[in-house]
Computed example of a mutant assay.
Amino acid sequence: MTATRSTRQRDVIAQVLGRAPGPLAVTEIFELAQGDLPGLGIATVYRTLKLLTGQGQIHPVTLDGETLYEASGKGHHHHFSCNHCGRVFTLHTCPVTLPSGTVYPGGFVVEAHEVTLYGQCPDCAGSQPG
């Protein structure tokens, strides 16, 4: 019975991350997963995130010193963080044209890059008085 329960927990957490519009904090994953698994504990969420990360199904994203998690396999992408509501979204376009191998002034050789844009998401921007 324990193996089935663990598999269900892994499946629900993986589904939560697969549906998310961007990377999620552990507390967000916990709250969303509890909708399907009301008895789920926070320690189980941490263990499952470690397991899914080790299996390559998800990966951590560090944003402003906080570790968030998102499903793997989304290809090259960046993030938008809403200053108003705090949600983080995945952007599927790259605002930077800086391919790997580019030599940046000073002799820095680019291997990869990460970009996070900050501002207001469409929901928050739309709720501002005009």
Rank of each mutant, 00 (worst) to 15 (best):
A3Y: 10
T4I: 15
T4C: 12
T4Q: 11
Q9E: 12
R10A: 13
D11E: 07
V12R: 03
I13M: 07
A14D: 11
V16D: 01
L17T: 12
G18H: 07
R19T: 10
R19K: 15
R19L: 14
P21V: 13
P21L: 08
P21I: 13
P21D: 13
G22L: 08
P23V: 12
P23K: 03
P23C: 01
L24K: 08
L24Y: 01
E28R: 15
E28V: 09
I29V: 15
I29E: 15
E31D: 12
A33C: 12
Q34D: 00
G35T: 12
G35K: 13
G35C: 09
G35M: 04
D36Q: 10
L37Y: 07
L37D: 04
L37I: 15
P38I: 12
G39H: 14
G39S: 10
L40W: 02
L40K: 03
G41E: 05
G41A: 02
T44S: 14
R47K: 13
T48Q: 11
T48E: 12
L49C: 11
L49Q: 08
K50T: 12
K50H: 14
L52H: 09
T53V: 02
T53C: 07
G56Q: 11
Q57H: 09
Q57P: 00
Q57E: 05
H59M: 03
V61E: 04
V61P: 03
T62N: 05
L63I: 15
G65H: 07
E66Q: 13
E66H: 09
E66W: 09
E66R: 08
T67D: 14
T67G: 01
T67S: 08
L68N: 06
Y69A: 01
A71W: 00
G73S: 04
K74E: 09
G75Q: 07
G75R: 14
H76G: 04
H77Y: 02
H78R: 04
H78D: 05
F80A: 11
F80R: 06
S81P: 00
S81C: 02
S81M: 08
S81E: 03
C82F: 00
H84M: 08
G86R: 07
R87W: 02
R87I: 13
V88I: 11
V88A: 08
T90L: 11
T90A: 09
L91I: 15
L91R: 02
H92G: 07
H92C: 06
H92E: 13
T93G: 01
V96P: 01
V96H: 00
V96Q: 00
T97N: 14
L98N: 15
L98D: 14
P99H: 03
S100G: 02
T102P: 00
T102H: 03
Y104H: 12
Y104I: 14
P105I: 15
G106N: 10
G106H: 10
G107Y: 06
G107H: 05
G107W: 02
G107A: 06
V110G: 00
V110A: 02
A112I: 00
A112V: 00
A112P: 04
A112D: 14
A112M: 11
H113K: 07
H113C: 01
H113S: 04
H113R: 04
E114Q: 13
V115K: 01
V115Q: 00
T116L: 02
T116D: 03
L117G: 11
L117P: 01
Y118H: 09
Q120T: 03
D123I: 08
D123E: 14
C124Q: 10
A125G: 00
A125M: 05
A125F: 04
G126R: 15
G126W: 15
G126P: 02
S127E: 11
